[in-house]
């Protein structure tokens, strides 16, 4: 947009490569101006190397030090603020990483922070959801440095290895405060989110046919980090426990993606999920009422479609 704008994206990475949300943030940043990327880690040369080839990245600042072995806000914020004044914008993905870090950075700079940006209107004006997405606010910043977290799903990821050959510049580490100590972490793949908080829900109906067949949905849900729900009919038939029930008499949900499998779409069920952002329905009956509310309908036998979908998600 403006040549004067320089944007620093704080990368979330695993020392080897950039997280996808970072790539989406880079795409967003590219709308604002020249993009630099900050990679702080321990043994993160590979990630810096990979980052240098991402489309739209002009420079990579790499601070490779044991102090940054864990992405703690208290450790990273001083590093970010030390280089912040060369930039008009500081961006990070709106993940728990970015949400933890960026407000700390903004407060240190005495500027506002803008969370969950879903669109860039102009270099100082952004769109973001408020009230659980019931409103989209357009906000304008009056600060010299704009500190943003970016909702990854709103931007395509920048292309990896697309020919970019950005300069990699080493950045000296800064003393980190002694008050915070990393104890450990436990990343659990099977630990599904709760229905009402899940970003994605895979929900099954009577079409699944049995409690055993419900496990088909587990694999799909694992791929998507989704919660598993069920229709009233499936619960009544004993295919799924009651606390999985989505609907008027069960849980009311509004995830970003709701995948209804083998659910006909009784009004009672629709009442519990119709505010979902994107609804996918898979049913073999083309007349099933669920297709009236679905954004994407797939008329197919679920016993073929679900494994195929699971596989396609890589």
């Amino acid at each position: 947009m403006s040549a004067a704008n320089k944007v620093l994206v704080i990368a979330e990475h695993d020392n080897r490569q950039l997280k996808k949300a970072t790539l989406c943030t880079i795409r967003c940043a590219a709308q604002l101006g020249e993009v630099h990327l900050l990679i702080a880690g321990s043994g993160c040369a590979a990630a810096a190397e990979a980052a240098s080839q991402v489309e739209g990245v002009a420079k990579v600042l790499c601070s490779d030090d044991a102090r940054y072995a864990h992405p703690l806000a208290a450790a990273l914020a001083p590093l970010v603020t030390s280089v912040a004044h060369g930039y008009s914008h500081l961006l990070a993905p709106a993940t728990t990483f970015g949400k933890d870090l960026m407000p700390r950075v903004a407060a240190k700079l005495d500027v506002a922070q803008i969370s969950d940006v879903i669109a860039i209107v102009s270099p100082d004006t952004f769109k973001r959801p408020i009230y659980a997405g019931n409103g989209i606010a357009t906000v304008q910043s009056r600060d010299a440095i704009k500190v943003l977290t970016v909702r990854a799903t709103a931007f395509d990821p920048a292309k990896v290895g697309a020919g970019g050959t950005a300069l990699i510049e080493a950045l000296a580490p800064i003393d980190v405060p002694a008050h915070t100590r990393f104890v450990g972490q436990a990343l659990a793949a099977s630990d599904r989110p709760e229905l009402t908080q899940a970003r994605v829900i895979v929900s099954g109906g009577r079409g699944l046919g049995s409690a055993e067949n419900f496990h088909l949905l587990d694999k799909l849900a694992d791929k998507l980090g989704a919660a598993v729900g069920a229709s009233r009919a499936a619960v009544d038939a004993g295919f799924a426990p009651n606390d999985w029930q989505v609907g008027q008499t069960g849980k009311i949900v509004a995830p970003e993606l709701y995948i209804a499998v083998g659910i006909s779409g009784a009004i009672q069920h629709l009442a519990g999920m119709k505010d979902s952002k994107v609804i996918v329905a898979n049913n073999k009956d083309p007349e099933a009422p669920i297709f009236q509310v679905a954004d994407y309908g797939l008329v197919a036998d679920l016993f073929q479609a679900v494994p195929e979908l699971t596989a396609a998600l890589g």
Binding site: T125, I130, S141, R142, V293, G297
Partner: peptide
């Protein structure tokens, strides 16, 4: 520090489409 210029409804649900295959979905 921030001015809210406007607040609008989230985009309304588009008319749904049927997809032919899992790949298209």
């Amino acid at each position: 520090r921030l001015a809210t210029l406007k607040v609008e409804e989230p985009p309304a649900r588009k008319a749904g489409v049927k997809v032919a295959s899992v790949a298209e979905l």
